[in-house]
Nucleic acid binder design. Sequence first.
DNA 1: ACAGAATGTCAAGTATATTTTACAAAATAT
DNA 2: ATATTTTGTAAAATATACTTGACATTCTGT
Lengths: 68, 68
Amino acid sequence: MSKNLRLKAARAERDMTQQALAEAAGVSRQTINAIEKGEYNPTIRLCLTICHALGKTLDELFWEEKEQ
Amino acid sequence: MSKNLRLKAARAERDMTQQALAEAAGVSRQTINAIEKGEYNPTIRLCLTICHALGKTLDELFWEEKEQ
DNA sequence: ACAGAATGTCAAGTATATTTTACAAAATAT
DNA sequence: ATATTTTGTAAAATATACTTGACATTCTGT
């Protein structure tokens, strides 16, 4: 998995820290950090919560074309 | 969580059984069944694989408006 | 009515997402 | 320069996604 720079950018756009987004989403800061770093694979429900918190859609933040 | 009828419909549109989609996505049939029944909360990576297999986007199959 | 395929469901196990605590590095402001 | 905030990272524990196997039910065709 590669870094999620779209998430980082959307967060910046709203001037939210990882901490603030974590609180808005009800998860730990490390979870947000790990998602941005591409270190794992959140559940769709968490993705949806993050999208709602940032005013973005799944496709905007999490879509990836089939690789290869 | 509520049933994912969009997933069921997209699968029907492609004339794929749960078994066939499970194989295409590399998971068990029960996992596909549980997702359609709304019994759980797949990872984003699995959602992406399912989308690719069915030729749909995340927003088409998994988007939900904020409830409440 | 019957056979076979597809779907629904359950229980026990395994893999992995997420938490907590803690500290180090980097960025930002004073 | 130095204090403060923000971000990166790690290890151990916990919650939960997902598997396997098995059986019951519903659907589809003949």
